[in-house]
Each structure stands twice: as C-alpha cells, then as structure tokens.
C-alpha cells in the first residue's frame, strides 16, 4: 500500500476554490500530484451523478470545493451542495463505500493555504483507506459468476 498513488478528482468552483487552487499553485504551496482538478462554474453544478461517475470509473476519492456559504455567485448553488453531499454519503455507505472518499469543503479565492491543506489531508486520508476497488468491481459485475 506504501506506493499507492491515489487518483483524486477535485471539482472546483470557478469563482472561489479554483482561484484558491491557483493561488496555492502560484504561491508554490505543496499539494499532491494525485489531485486532478475539474473546473466547474459552481459547486451546485456538481451533481451526485458526477461524483458517482468519477468513483465508478476509478477515482479513489472525490473532493467537492465551493465558495463559503453565503458567497455563492449563483446565490443558492452551494446550499444545494451542502444538502446533497451528506445525503450522497449516506447512499455511498450503503454501497459499502467509505463515506470519507467524498469530501465537501469551502475554499475561497484567497485561501490558497486552505486549499493546499485540504488537498494534503484528503490525499492522506485516501491513502490510508487504500484504493477503491470500484472499477474492478464494475468490470467483474459484468461477467461475474463467482464470489
């Protein structure tokens, strides 16, 4: 497990967290290469479908990052996210998937340090969890006859 390099997808809201990630980058703060950033216009755009899709094609963890409550440029977007993620986590748990594989955080454009810290701690926690076997599972469920 030591050399496990997790694949992590981070959905970053364009207006805050993406800028925060950018700041972290330009300020040369260290954050793990495991993170693949996908820029979205608002955390409200991150439907449960996208999170599940990421997990089902092999992501070991999914980060959803949005503006702080009250700061969403589309007013309600991140409140929606605030309600979706806990419900989604309950669902994941029932699927036997550790709820820690999905995390929601609020990161503003000026919080480059927070971005780096979230990215680091999330990556570490995914490393501790080990790889998600979802992808194999999906393959095997296609033709699985034993188990």
């Amino acid at each position: 497990m030591d050399n496990f390099e997790p694949k992590i997808v981070a959905f970053c809201c364009n207006w805050c967290s993406y800028a925060g990630a950018d700041l972290a980058g330009t300020s040369r703060m260290q954050y793990p290469p495991a993170i693949r950033i996908i820029r979205v216009m608002c955390s409200g755009r991150v439907s449960p479908f996208l999170v599940l899709k990421a997990l089902s094609v092999g992501a070991d963890g999914v980060l959803v990052l949005g503006c702080h409550p009250g700061d969403c440029h589309y007013i309600e977007g991140n409140y929606k996210t605030m309600r979706r993620i806990p419900l989604l986590k309950k669902v994941l748990k029932q699927f036997g998937i550790e709820e820690e594989r999905v995390r929601l955080e609020w990161v503003s454009a000026s919080e480059g340090a927070k971005f780096a810290e979230v990215a680091n701690s999330f990556t570490q926690s995914i490393k501790n969890l080990g790889p998600s076997t979802l992808d194999n599972l999906k393959q095997s469920s296609k033709g699985a006859k034993h188990g």
């Binding site: 089902s56 699927f95 599972l137 469920s141």
Partner: peptide, 10 residues
Amino acid sequence: DSLLRRARIK
C-alpha cells in the same frame, strides 16, 4: 443499472 451496480462487500 446504476453507475455503481452493486454494493461492495468486504
């Protein structure tokens, strides 16, 4: 038919 298809059983 869902994206996850089945629960993961340890």
